[in-house]
């Protein structure tokens, strides 16, 4: 099992190494090709990891003694929350790179990361609410982590809405880069203040099983799912970037050659 996590993590790792190594070249056709290659082997791996992790978590592990089986939602709630947060940072860093070094590819990466992150945040929220029902009896529980997730979703929606509001797409990219950077600075502040606020009003509320507290038999599927979600995020990011590249470069020669190998020079 852990070899697959290693594979996904390694995939992500050497992707970043390649990315920083090649970022000087950053030319669209090269990126289009390399993204395709990575997706070709990463996509099946991700789907496999997701299926195995879900099956393992759902069917094979024993229920939590306090919450019974409803805790199994942890296998999608926690990974999607973790990757959604990481996704925001990926978007903000891509924005920073596109602002500072004026790299169009980073701008494409940022534009591609936003919807995926928003979708993952929504999954985290939805599963959090579903999990809250059996354990706390209420659909919406103003728990610190779930509230922070809600704010993260608003941040994502803000970035997407700002991008759509601009007519000139380049200016939109730069404006979103600034907004995501401002957001990145504010996320730790928001998380701390929400945690503090939550402890002020309900200090005694039960805290459902944090990652470390659960015993090893439940931990492995969780780690696998987190790795799978990371791979999922990378996959969606790369596929979105490919589509975005086609959209922006639709008039260039390399796209024409792509469509018709013997197309006009």
């Amino acid at each position: 099992m852990s070899s697959r996590i290693g594979a996904a993590q390694k995939g992500l790792y050497n992707l970043t190494v390649m990315w920083t190594f090649f970022h000087k070249l950053g030319s669209p056709p090269w990126l289009y090709g390399i993204a395709g290659a990575i997706v070709r082997w990463l996509l099946p791996l991700t789907i496999l990891a997701l299926l195995v992790g879900a099956a393992w978590g759902l069917l094979f592990t024993s229920p939590d003694f306090r919450q019974g089986n409803s805790y199994r939602i942890i296998y999608i709630h926690v990974p999607s929350a973790v990757v959604a947060l990481a996704g925001y940072y990926v978007m903000a860093i891509a924005g920073a790179v596109s602002l500072i070094w004026r790299m169009k590819m980073a701008d494409v990466a940022m534009k591609a990361a936003a919807p995926v992150g928003a979708a993952l945040t929504f999954i985290a929220l939805f599963t959090g609410a579903l999990w809250g029902k059996p354990t706390w009896g209420t659909w919406w529980e103003w728990d610190a982590r779930i509230t922070s997730m809600l704010i993260l979703l608003f941040l994502y929606l803000g970035v997407v809405a700002l991008y759509e509001a601009f007519d000139n797409k380049e200016a939109a990219g730069r404006a979103c880069a600034i907004l995501s950077l401002v957001g990145m600075v504010n996320i730790p502040i928001i998380y701390k203040s929400v945690d503090w606020w939550y402890s002020l009003h309900q200090p005694a509320s039960i805290k459902f099983s944090g990652e470390s507290a659960i015993d090893s038999s439940m931990l492995y599927p969780l780690l696998l799912m987190i790795g799978a979600f990371y791979a999922l995020f990378t996959c969606c990011l790369l596929m979105n970037m490919r589509a975005e590249l086609l959209q922006r470069e639709s008039r260039t020669a390399w796209v024409r050659r792509l469509v018709k190998p013997d197309g006009p020079r």
């Binding site: 704010i151 608003f154 601009f166 907004l179 504010n186 928001i190 929400v194």
Partner: peptide, 29 residues
């Protein structure tokens, strides 16, 4: 910050609240 980003847009009014309200939350708390 929100005003600067949306000053060029015709219908920036509503957008600015979506952008900036999440950043106001710590101050409110």
């Amino acid at each position: 910050i929100g005003a600067a980003l949306t000053v060029g847009l015709k219908r920036g009014g509503m957008l600015i609240s979506l952008l900036i309200l999440p950043l106001y939350i710590p101050v409110l708390i």
